Computed example of a mutant assay.
Amino acid sequence: MAKAHAAAAAGGFAVTICIVDEGGHLLRLDRLEDAPLISLRVAEGKARTAVELNMSTAALEQAVAALPSMTAIAGIYPFRGGIPLRQDGYCVGAIGVSGVLPDQDEQVAQSGASALAA
Rank of each mutant, 00 (worst) to 15 (best):
A2V: 11
A4M: 03
A6S: 09
A6W: 04
A6N: 05
A7Q: 10
A7T: 12
A7C: 05
A10M: 08
G12R: 14
F13T: 11
A14P: 14
V15I: 15
C18E: 07
V20N: 02
D21P: 06
D21K: 12
L26M: 15
L27C: 14
R31I: 07
R31A: 11
A35F: 06
A35P: 08
P36K: 03
P36Y: 00
P36D: 10
L37W: 10
L37Q: 01
S39W: 11
S39G: 11
S39F: 05
L40K: 10
L40M: 10
L40Y: 03
R41P: 05
R41D: 13
V42W: 01
V42M: 10
E44C: 09
K46P: 04
A47C: 02
R48E: 13
T49R: 01
A50D: 12
A50C: 09
L53M: 07
L53S: 03
N54A: 10
M55F: 04
T57H: 04
T57I: 03
A58Y: 04
A58I: 01
A59V: 15
L60P: 08
L60M: 09
L60I: 00
L60A: 10
Q62H: 05
A63C: 13
P68M: 02
M70D: 06
A74G: 07
A74H: 08
G75R: 14
G75S: 01
I76N: 07
Y77G: 04
P78V: 13
P78Y: 15
F79C: 11
F79A: 12
R80C: 02
G81T: 09
I83S: 02
I83W: 09
R86S: 11
Q87G: 08
D88H: 06
D88K: 08
G89V: 03
Y90N: 15
V92H: 13
V92P: 02
G93C: 07
G93Q: 08
A94T: 03
I95Y: 13
G99A: 08
G99E: 10
L101K: 13
L101I: 04
E106M: 02
Q107V: 03
Q107R: 13
A109V: 02
Q110P: 03
Q110M: 12
Q110C: 01
Q110V: 07
S111D: 08
S114C: 12
